[in-house]
Design a protein around this nucleic acid. Structure first.
Lengths: 219, 219
DNA sequence: TGGTGTATTGACCATTTGGTCAATACATGG
DNA sequence: CCATGTATTGACCAAATGGTCAATACACCA
């Protein structure tokens, strides 16, 4: 069914990988189908053969990206360990996964530019984040039971907080550099930032749910 | 020097405004020069007449955007008021400025996709953030002097923290919606998020600089 | 009043871009 | 061993795209 040295599976994967690089580097609109084909050393037709269209290829890239990102967060070993340590690991894993997968950030930003057109269609994404939320809820509960975390923390809100702190630093590196003249790429600075956001998250979990802090003037 | 009903200044502004909308909606690569011209009701040549090239127009849009964003943060009245209130206002102003200027977020993300190519050339951006950092430093100092803030907080780190919390929520609305099935656009939810991040930032400023929290295992 | 320079336009262009067609090579099942 | 279906390719296409040219209209200064 196939030509001599050909390996369809491998070809597909190669296209997916190179396409991810191209889409991440230039965005959906900036990415060129011809460029991807060239990167693959294949005739452009192969992309259409396997993925139908540029958009089809982009969707495949997106779904693969979500799976990769999920894999990075999945094995975050929190079972048994104490809540503070679990929280620390959650932050570290989230930051590491994003730092390792710059393409994911670029693709997510592109998706948001287009109002999440593709992401909203995919049911898989939702199923992917639910277990994460459950885990966080569990950690928070244990922390509260032990009397070291406040009891009024919503797991989604907490995850949003920590992913904001992890994501923004990596996503906006270059404009932040332009604004503050600091090289946020440097390993030492990244490490310091991770330490800081860990501090912040845990500090928040431990803080008193003081009404004076949360709304001094009412709202 | 000019045609009958023409007003070059106004024309320029109109182009800038419509171009901002187009670039923000589709990104630099996705934006079409013809589309901008059509939005303006002008011959495409006008864009080249005033801005030289698509990139020249984009740079003009970017610089205008930075100025607009700065204007939104400038009048954040912190003089005299107590540090906690000042911090609260800083967070509120930052969030409001970003919420009001969705185009700014889109443009910044696009810049980051291209590694801040244009932003890094502009000297004005840097000059724009320095006074903000100074103000924050001052607020932190007053808070520390009054014994209500910890003393080891770096102003840039603090600004990065709060802008992460404000920016990410707005920037990633759509993919977050896909992931959690929550409508983050809703006014009530936005208000709640602002309250939350304010809480978090102030809670952090007030927290003890406990070594046990920051690095329990050493690093 | 007539010349000069700017605002503005319609027509045009080379190149790029996403996408298609028809053909070829070949492994496998009947 | 031949028919079938898939992997793969070179050639090609219409449309879109960033950009340019030459011309026109008009306000202002000499």
């Amino acid at each position: 069914m196939r030509k001599s040295g050909s390996d369809p599976q491998r070809t597909r994967e190669k296209i997916l990988a190179r396409a991810t690089a191209e889409f991440a580097a230039r965005g959906y609109s900036g990415a060129r189908v011809d460029a991807i084909a060239r990167r693959c050393g294949l005739a452009k037709n192969m992309l259409y053969h396997y993925f139908g269209s540029k958009e089809g290829l982009f969707i495949a890239v997106l779904e693969r990206m979500y799976e990769t990102l999920r894999a990075g967060q999945r094995d975050f070993a929190i079972r048994g360990s104490d809540p503070v340590e679990a929280m620390r690991q959650l932050v570290a894993h989230t930051f590491a996964a994003l730092a390792e997968h710059g393409e994911a950030i670029a693709l997510l930003n592109d998706e948001n530019l287009h109002k999440g057109r593709h992401a909203k269609r995919s049911k898989r994404i939702r199923a992917l984040y639910d277990p994460l939320v459950d885990t966080i809820r569990e950690v928070l509960r244990r922390g509260a039971d032990q009397g070291i975390f406040r009891r009024d923390i919503d797991p989604v809100t907490l995850y949003l907080s920590l992913s904001s702190l992890a994501y923004h630093y990596l996503s906006n590196q270059h404009t932040l550099n332009a604004a503050f003249g600091i090289d946020f790429t440097a390993a030492a600075r990244r490490k310091a930032w991770l330490a800081h956001i860990t501090d912040m998250i845990i500090s928040y979990c431990r803080s008193e749910a003081s009404a004076a802090v949360r709304r001094p003037h009412a709202s």
